[in-house]
Each structure stands twice: as C-alpha cells, then as structure tokens.
C-alpha cells in the first residue's frame, strides 16, 4: 500500500521568481531598492538634470557664493534649491555630479575586487594544500588591518586621483571576497556534482568556473552589496581626509569636506546636503542588502 498524501500545493515558480517575490514582501527592502535606483538615476543623468555644470569654473558667479537654499542666482536664471558653496557652485548640481563619482568609484572597485577575490578564493579552494595556506595567510594579514588605515597609507604613497583611490579600494577589498569565495567553494567542492564533473574528466578551470562559481554566487552577491556600501563610505572618508579624489573631481565626501570650514559659521547646507545624498545611497544599499541576505540564504533556496 502506498502513501496517499495529499499533494502539496506547489506554486510553479522559478528560483528567480521566488527571490523577487520574497524580496518584495519586505517593504523596507523595497524602499532601500528605490533609494538605490534613485541614486543611480541621479548619477547617470547628472548632465541632463543639473541646472549648472559645477566643473565649469568660468560659469560661476562668485557673488552667489554661500547662498542659502532656495536663493535665486544673481542673474535671475536659476534657483539654488540646495544653496551654493564657497565658490558659488550650485549644491544640487554638485551633488548630482558628486554622486556620479562616488557611485563610479564604488561599483568599479567592488567589481574589480570581486573578480580578483573570486579567482584567488576559488584557486585556493580548488588547489588546497600549500597554495591554499599561502593565499589565505595573505588574506588573513590583509583582513587583520582596518581598511581605512591600509587605504590611507596606500594613498599617502600613491598620491591623489580617482585611479589611485580605485587601486587602494580594490586592494583593501579583494580579501573579503577571496575568503568568502573560498569558504563557499569548499562547501561546494565536497558535493556530488563536483565529483561527477571530475569523473567526467572536465578540465579544472571548467569545473571551478562553470560548476562551482554559480553555486557560490548567492553569498558573494550579499557580500558585494555590503562591500559596495562600505566602499562608497570609505571613498567619502578618504576624500574628506584630503587623500582621495582631487579637487577638480569632487565626490560627495569631498563636498562634505568643503563645507566643514563653513559649518561653524552657520552655512550648514554645504556639508549637510551632500551628506544626505551619501546617506541615501548607502542606506539604500544596506537596506536592500540586509534583506537580500535573508532571501538568498541557501537554506531558503530549493
């Protein structure tokens, strides 16, 4: 006699659909995603939606310097909704362009660090033995020092510049991915499908990248979101300290730094609004990432 259990009401859902629907269940996470999309939109469309090109020094009218939010420009053409800074730059336009640089630095550094870290981590996991021990020792040393210090020292050696900031950020971030990729890969390595692939005599790189990598992706994506938020904050901090981006390409951190000197005299908007923009981007990423972790949890994946 066989079991006559009622069939479980199965919803025909692909894993991706399940992730999307689970994700949308949490309103806070959706709100975070909206913030992220908004930040990206502002950054991408900066030249189109800005009232002024903040890099065009010639177009600035010093008479308008430090105008509070909502002031009309002296030529009466535009309104400084968020005020102007010490050089009469429209803060709103500066923020749009600053977001561009902050997000660019964040995304590029995380993607590069992800690529490097994944290769190192997977190689360590697959090779094992001495290679593994050697690579992970480097990772341990990297991770035992605070990212901000390492980046600070690196930049003091390298000098200013977006490219230099990128190098510093990649160097302090790859180790996180290497450790995570190795951890995930070690778990996957012992599973049957890898054994099966090995039995089929598939080349090692193919087993690693075509078979193991996709299964490590959920945890890597989660770490990438957290790291992205940290990278953006770190770049802002470095620029604030004066070792990050050059004055000619102000990121959000640089804008905040510029406003620091005017803060005590009451011109709060020069630091305040870039900070809000920065916070919106980072909070958005963290809110979405926090829930993404729950949704992508392998225990929930079927």
């Amino acid at each position: 006699m066989t079991v006559a259990l009622e069939p479980v009401a199965a919803k025909p859902q692909t894993p991706f659909q399940r992730i999307v629907s689970d994700f949308c269940e949490n309103r806070l996470a959706v709100f975070g995603l909206v913030l992220v999309v908004l930040s990206i939109f502002v950054a991408a469309a900066a030249p189109l939606i800005s009232t002024q090109n903040p890099f065009d020094i010639a177009g600035l009218d010093l008479l308008d310097a430090k105008s509070p939010p909502g002031t009309m420009s002296s030529d009466g053409k535009i309104t400084y909704w968020l005020g102007t800074d010490g050089q009469a730059r429209d803060m709103m336009s500066a923020i749009f362009y600053g977001m561009r640089i902050s997000l660019f630095v964040g995304f590029v550094s995380v993607l590069a660090a992800l690529a490097i870290g994944v290769v190192v981590g997977l190689v360590a996991a697959y090779a094992g033995g001495r290679t593994d021990a050697f690579l992970m020792r480097i990772v341990d040393i990297m991770l035992s020092f605070p990212a901000i210090l390492v980046a600070l020292i690196l930049l003091s050696v390298l000098g200013k510049g977006i490219d230099k900031v990128l190098i510093a950020l990649i160097l302090v971030q790859w180790a996180y991915f290497a450790r995570a990729a190795r951890g995930a890969a070690l778990v996957e390595r012992n599973k049957e499908y890898v054994e099966a692939a090995t039995c089929l005599a598939l080349p090692p790189w193919r087993i690693v990248f075509r078979h193991m990598l996709p299964n490590c992706m959920p945890s890597l994506i989660v770490i990438a979101t957290i790291t992205l938020a940290r990278a953006i904050a770190l770049e802002a901090t470095l620029s604030f300290l004066g070792v990050g981006v050059p004055v000619t390409q102000p990121s959000l951190g640089m804008l905040i730094s510029n406003g620091f000197e005017f803060l005590l005299s009451g011109s709060y908007w020069i630091s305040f609004f870039p900070g809000v923009a920065l916070a919106i981007a980072i909070i958005g990423i963290n809110l979405a990432g926090d829930h993404l972790r729950d949704v992508l949890n392998p225990r929930n994946l079927r």
Binding site: A236, T237, F260, L263, G275, L278, A279, I282, I285
Partner: peptide, 14 residues
C-alpha cells in the same frame, strides 16, 4: 552603520 561616520560627526557639531 550606514551613515557616514565623519558626516555624523559634522552634524553633531552643527
């Protein structure tokens, strides 16, 4: 842990 630390410091001063 999202709010940029240095900015929070500035805002507290403000």
């Amino acid at each position: 842990f999202s709010l940029p630390n240095f900015w929070v410091g500035l805002m507290l001063i403000m």
